[in-house]
Amino acid sequence: MPQMSMIEAIRDAMDVKMAEDDNVVVFGEDVGYFGGVFRCTHGLQDKYGKNRVFDSPINESGIVGAAIGMAAYGLRPCVEIQFADYIYPAYDQIVSEAARLRYRSGEQFTAPITIRTPVGGGIFGGQTHSQSPESLFTHVAGVKSVIPSNPYDAKGLLIAAMEDPDPVIVFEPKRLYNGPFDGHHDRPASNWSKHPLGDVPEGHYTVEIGKASTFREGKAVTILTYGTMVYVAEAAVKETGIDAEIIDLRSLLPLDVDAIVESVKKTGRCMVLHEATQTSGFGAELAAQVQERCFYHLESPVVRVAGYDTPYPHAQEWDYFPGPARVGRELKAMMEAV
């Protein structure tokens, strides 16, 4: 099976869909000739031409707004917002338009668009290259949000997103583009070529939107997480020796509630873990779901480990980032709680 980085897997997903479906178009800032600042669209313009792969003006609301118009016409746009930190100018188009076109038009008009955007920290990128704004979108009715943590899922979820009849945002953890990252920034970076999840089948396959995966089975506690934090959780588990079950949610909306409930009922404890700021973060939704559905199975309170409620700092990145030490500490404290 071919080995791919997450970048290659994402590119391959677009390649597969473009070859299959003439209606697929790809655009965004620097994505055409250059192939994107992270190279995710590299070579696609050469292969499919400027009619289908092209550069956009630096105007995020225009990128999403134009995609909506095209999608309503019948195309299948897959657009890139260069960093999730720059998605806010497009917020109105996503929230008021893409998410509601179907509902308000009696389903005469729909917006089957895919918005790809790199998220998360760990690259020393300061407040405008590090944010995790997923909960600003999961709060919106009418738009789906997915977040892969490895090349296999990235390709499968992106193809699923591109085939979905509704708007889907694909948050791509940029720190995972080239390899898994467990939060130990001072250790040598690893890459996907040595990782089983870097095995990516050729051709078409999908990972169903709305289905979590059990990244690690365990009995002591359930860790609900996604993106880069999957590997941070794994490192914390190794370092503490606590037998946690790690659920990689993959899809935030829709959410795989069954998988969550099954795991928490089994372990009786739950930690929710994300990079994004804690207050009103997606972890709040997860904690509420667990409380509602698993209350009588819980042996200790649900614990949230998340980014501090500050803008993403530059120099203090490794104090800010919820790394394995912090996660490990919280895990231990949870296990000690009666």
Binding site: G126, Q127, P313, H314
Partner: peptide, 9 residues
């Protein structure tokens, strides 16, 4: 750093 490390170079 007058901006206390909070902001990108």
């Amino acid at each position: 750093d007058p901006l206390k490390g909070r902001q990108l170079p």
